[in-house]
């Protein structure tokens, strides 16, 4: 069985630009003094976000990622989504990716819900006809009703989340990336979303979920990746990890 997601020796550090480094005046001034100010790490800080990650995911795998704040969970999701390219190592994903890393971002606030669905679908490479055929299903699932023809800026945060979730899950991605499950939405929708997730998972696709909720991982995932300061502390089956002792069993 060939892997759908394969990560090999992944390493990524990302630059953080201070206001000074983003200013062209300072940069030119720095060139004049031999770039010393920039090189001393004051202005462009390189954060080693991920180091030495290697794992593979196969059909039907549901990977949970846990780790402290800043451990690299979201960064890893973004690397899997293709937003960040690794510095070293390689990441191969076979199939269509659907990411729900930052719900709401990626929506165009001035377009209506329906137009956003079209754009998101087209951007993911679906033919127009197929998207139009699926719109009723998305509208029904997201319970947006008449709101779907209003600009997204009129939506509440929960409605935006529901729209993105409906699009991400209806368009049948091969790989679904989720950050903290879905942040918004009321309790009833949560239940519906959980059911939808189970549907999707039963169609044996790959899901990657970054969360702090251990219970969620134990009930949904079969594989676990523990990150600690950007390093891979553990990768394996969920039941091989002791969540209380924070150590492999």
């Amino acid at each position: 069985m060939s892997s759908i997601v394969s990560v090999n020796g992944l390493e990524l550090s990302y630059p953080i630009y201070s206001i000074r480094a983003s200013s062209i005046r300072n940069t030119i001034a720095n060139l004049a003094v031999g770039g010393k100010l920039l090189k001393d790490g004051q202005d462009v800080i390189h954060v080693r976000a991920l180091e030495g990650l290697s794992f593979s995911l196969y059909e039907g795998d549901r990977l949970g990622i846990i780790g402290h704040n800043g451990a690299g969970k979201t960064t890893l999701l973004k690397v899997l989504a293709g937003v960040y390219e690794p510095d070293r190592g390689n990441v191969t994903v076979h199939g269509r990716i659907s990411s729900m890393i930052d719900v709401g971002l990626g929506l165009d606030a001035s377009l209506t819900g329906r137009e956003n669905i079209m754009t998101m679908g087209r951007m993911r490479g679906f033919p127009t006809r197929e998207i139009i055929a699926k719109i009723p299903d998305m509208v029904e699932f997201s319970e947006l009703g008449g709101y779907v023809d209003l600009p997204v800026k009129a939506y509440s945060a929960g409605m935006q989340a529901r729209l993105v979730f409906a699009v991400a899950t209806t368009l049948e991605p091969d790989v679904l990336l989720l950050d903290e499950w879905i942040g918004a939405g009321d309790a009833a929708f949560h239940e519906k979303a959980a059911n939808r997730m189970n549907d999707i998972l039963s169609q044996s696709r790959v899901m990657v979920l970054a969360t702090h909720n251990f219970g969620m991982i134990q009930s949904v995932c079969n594989k676990l990746l523990v990150l600690n300061g950007g390093r891979q502390e553990f990768f394996g089956k969920v039941d091989q990890w002791d969540f209380n002792l924070r150590a492999p069993r």
Partner: peptide
């Protein structure tokens, strides 16, 4: 916003 979240 889009660039940081989608690999278009």
């Amino acid at each position: 916003g889009i660039i940081k979240n989608h690999a278009y």
